[in-house]
């Protein structure tokens, strides 16, 4: 797998892969895709893709508000940065 592709998918995945790790990761991905390639040999023409083990349909929830929920304090308790009930991040530039 080319380094450029690894760089691209690492960025799409938002993982800051250091240049020094690129070659090693590319090699590992190569061996994983060699394993994955075995599947390509299976004839699958006309086979309906299976998305899910259950042949069920999506249940629907009545449009009602919940009676109780964790407090906002509890929901924000693990936030790396929060103030005034907001999660804070470095400035979002549009």
């Amino acid at each position: 797998m080319e380094a450029e592709i690894v760089r691209r998918i690492a960025h799409l995945s938002r993982i800051a892969l250091p240049e020094s790790e690129l070659a090693q990761v590319a090699g590992q991905l190569d061996s994983i895709f060699a394993l994955v390639a075995q599947m390509q040999a299976v004839p699958t023409e006309g086979i309906e893709p299976m998305a899910h083990p259950l042949d069920l349909q999506q249940p629907l929830r009545a449009d009602q508000l919940r009676s109780e929920t964790p407090s906002r304090e509890e929901l924000l308790a693990s936030a790396p940065r929060a103030e005034d009930g907001l999660f804070l991040v470095p400035k979002v530039i549009e």
Binding site: I5, R14, I15, L17, V25, I32, V92
Partner: peptide
Amino acid sequence: LQELYLQSRYEGFGAEVRRRILVGTY
């Protein structure tokens, strides 16, 4: 913000998890 994503996810995930995320993204 971009560094927040990139660095936090690099530091927060171990090598096997990162590998599988890369495979899945691909």
